[in-house]
Amino acid sequence: MFPMVTGFMSYGQQTIRATRYIGQSFITTLSHTNRLPITIHYPYEKSITPERFRGRIHFEFDKCIACEVCVRVCPIDLPVVDWRFEKDIKRKQLLNYSIDFGVCIFCGNCVEYCPTSCLSMTEEYELSTYDRHELNYNQIALSRLPISIMGDYTIQTIRNSSESKINKEKSSNSRTITDY
């Protein structure tokens, strides 16, 4: 008689435990129902690129002094700097400048080391073409300004969740500074 009672008790305890576990897991599942879909519908919605995103390189022809530092710091010596020494002004004159984005690895060394900051990174990343020779950008193609995603009203921009968190932290920090 006695072992039967303990058996029933343990069975009851097991049942309660099992129902609790099932309930817990269902709470986890049901908590996902009020989550919004996270898919970015790309051509219509674009996520804002991070602050220091390394996209296509922008080049300003008039600023360049043809020092070839970008070629020296490049891991593959990629930028082609075509210059001629002008004797009357005793200065190098830049004739042509090109970067092949089919080879470029977007490391940003050239941008980092450019002494006159004529190189800069843009947030343009849609560079795919049908012909690989089109990827060789000359100075005219490099000096084209990128179209801002924020300015295009047909595209919805989506802020990254981590970025907004950082911004929140920044704002809280600035608040403490102003309070001080």
């Binding site: 970015i40 790309y42 051509p43 674009k46 996520s47 984005f101 089919g102 470029c104 690895i105 977007f106 490391c107 990343y125 849609e126 560079l127 795919s128 073409t129 049908y130 012909d131 690989r132 990827l135």
Partner: peptide
């Protein structure tokens, strides 16, 4: 034979979709 060239090291996932649309 390659149809579309997609530069980047590596390209963004959005850039891959862009290559797909092309």
């Amino acid at each position: 034979p390659v149809d579309v060239y997609l530069p980047g090291c590596p390209p963004k996932p959005e850039a891959v979709i862009d290559a797909l649309t092309k």
